[in-house]
Design a protein around this nucleic acid. Structure first.
Length: 463
RNA sequence: GGCGGCGUAGCCAAGUGGCUAAGGCGACGGUUUGCAAAACCGUUAUUCCCGGGUUCGAAUCCCGGCGCCGCCUCCA
């Protein structure tokens, strides 16, 4: 089976082939850390997480990078507004990112490069671009000259004359062409700066990603991802920079996730319309949030909606219910068993088709039904099905716990005692007391279920 | 103005030329239960925004409408 990925560069699904056999280099655009990470960012990071996990499932050795752009105009502005050091602002938001990433079970990247740690690589790339005649200096600024780069617009499908017609580019006397963009910005009083061949200054936006991605992954590398809002100008400019500097193709596959919208408007920092992911996780299980994001395909827009989140929470609880009644240890999975292999094939067929997570989840839900049927029928093969289901959910990045949630031996013992006493009461048909116990425990977040095999308890997830 | 996307059940959402139009949420009925919960079984789109066309055959392709959205400026 071959993985096919929709490549923004060609606007078609292409069979994935890595530059080097068995290995994959991925650069997924991270945040410009001027503000708190929100649910829209999380959608992008989940997209990258799925790409990584699935490639690893397919047997690839993955080198995965997510950057922090920790110096740019917005960060400087924001830090001035708040009256704090720009480094503090960046650090605060980076910390919150890691907290959210951990809660959401994002696989930690192989490396998290920061723009301010790669000024040397950035300067070298700017020099290479200039040496090749694609950039010019003007009053301590260095600009990329878009008219010199023939391939400009190949990712976004834009034409230079249309860009001028848009006329939203601010006229700048330093620029030769309105669409030229800054590789290096001359120092202004009160702003951070680094020394460069063009005097004091700082990198422009875009150059850090070209410099850092190729520094770690080489050129060309396999996969570059991010939100659709980055296609132009950010990724278009990254291509121009890297290819002008080195004269070889920058990236083979471009993956872009669609936006998460809020009441029809994009959730973004500039509009002030956003929900910080950390705040959302106060109310929702991370697995439910992940399910909410994965039940739509990554290339379709999603509306942010608490109704949808509640729906996902209900859907996820079906898995929780199932796994909580299983033993902690599940059997080894034998994939050559045909009764299991057909599920893996259905899952792979779905994921191979441009990471079709809604379809892959449908397979997971059907497998859940099958496993429940086997469980109810007392068929011992249910455990093998459960183990497979756990594995598939983990490929999709869910955290799956089996057995009753561990609260410590003491609590387990107490609950066991209560359940035992209540069972005695039920035998004596004293249902008023038995129901009272169940109700009171329920309000404490402990659910009791009377099954033919005895009473089991579990946590409701809301305490 | 330029470029791109979308419209499938009450809601969300796969499917993009041919098996009974996935799956989830919700709702309703049944089995089970002291009552619940959970689980299982069943029902919930003769039809895919509307109108034409191509085809033996279309939700899927083409043309024309209507409606919604994104990008073109900082953004995941």
């Amino acid at each position: 089976m071959a993985l096919r990925i929709y490549n923004t560069l060609t606007r078609t699904k292409e069979e994935f082939r890595p530059v080097r056999e068995g290995r994959v280099g991925i650069y997924f655009c991270g945040m410009t850390v001027q503000d708190r990470p929100h649910v829209g960012h999380m959608r992008a990071f989940i997209t990258g997480d799925i790409v990584w996990r699935y490639l690893e499932f397919k047997g690839y050795d993955v080198f995965y990078l997510t950057n922090f752009t920790d110096i740019d105009d917005k960060i400087i502005m924001k830090s001035k507004d708040e009256g704090i050091d720009w480094r503090m602002l960046a650090e605060r938001n980076i910390e919150e990112f890691f907290k959210a990433a951990n809660l959401m079970n994002l696989k930690p990247a192989t490396h998290y490069p920061r723009a301010t740690n790669h000024i040397q690589e950035i300067i070298e790339m700017v020099e290479a671009i200039m040496a090749n005649g694609f950039a010019y200096e003007s009053n301590g600024n260095v600009y990329f000259e878009v008219e010199k780069f023939a391939g400009y617009g190949k990712l976004s499908g834009k034409k230079l004359k249309d860009l001028i017609a848009g006329a939203r580019v601010e006229p700048d006397p330093n620029k030769r062409h309105p669409a030229d963009f800054a590789l290096w910005k001359a120092h202004k009083p009160g702003e951070p700066y680094w020394h460069s061949p063009w005097g004091k200054g700082r990198p422009g936006w875009h150059i850090e990603c070209s410099a850092m991605s190729t520094h770690y992954l080489g050129q060309p590398f396999d996969i570059h991802g991010g939100g659709t809002d980055l296609i132009f100008p950010h990724h278009e400019n990254e291509i121009a920079q890297a290819e002008a500097a080195r004269g070889v193709k920058f990236v083979n596959f471009w993956i872009h996730n669609e936006m998460l919208n809020l009441k029809g408007e994009k959730m973004s920092k500039s509009t002030g319309l956003f929900f910080a992911i950390i705040d959302v996780l106060e109310h929702y299980d991370p697995n439910a949030v992940r399910l909410y994001l994965l039940k739509s395909h990554y290339r379709s827009p999603i509306d942010y909606s608490e109704e949808r989140l509640n729906e996902a929470q209900s859907a996820w609880s079906n898995f929780v219910e199932f796994f909580s009644k299983l033993p902690k240890e599940l059997p080894e999975i034998n994939l050559s068993d045909p009764s299991l292999a057909k599920w893996v094939k259905a899952f792979e067929d779905a994921m191979d088709d441009d990471f079709n997570t809604p379809k892959a989840l449908a397979v997971a839900f059907e497998l859940l039904s099958e496993a429940n049927r086997l469980f109810t029928a007392g068929d011992e093969s249910f455990a093998a099905h459960a183990a497979l289901l756990k594995m598939l959910l983990e490929v999709l990045g869910f955290r799956v716990e089996t057995g009753a949630q561990a609260l410590g031996q003491f609590v387990d013992d107490l609950l066991e005692l209560i359940v035992e006493v209540r069972s005695e009461l039920r035998k004596e048909r004293r249902y008023d007391l038995a129901d009272k116990i169940r109700d009171r425990l329920g309000s404490l977040g402990v659910l009791l279920e009377d099954t033919p095999e005895g009473t089991i308890w579990k946590l409701s997830g809301r305490r």
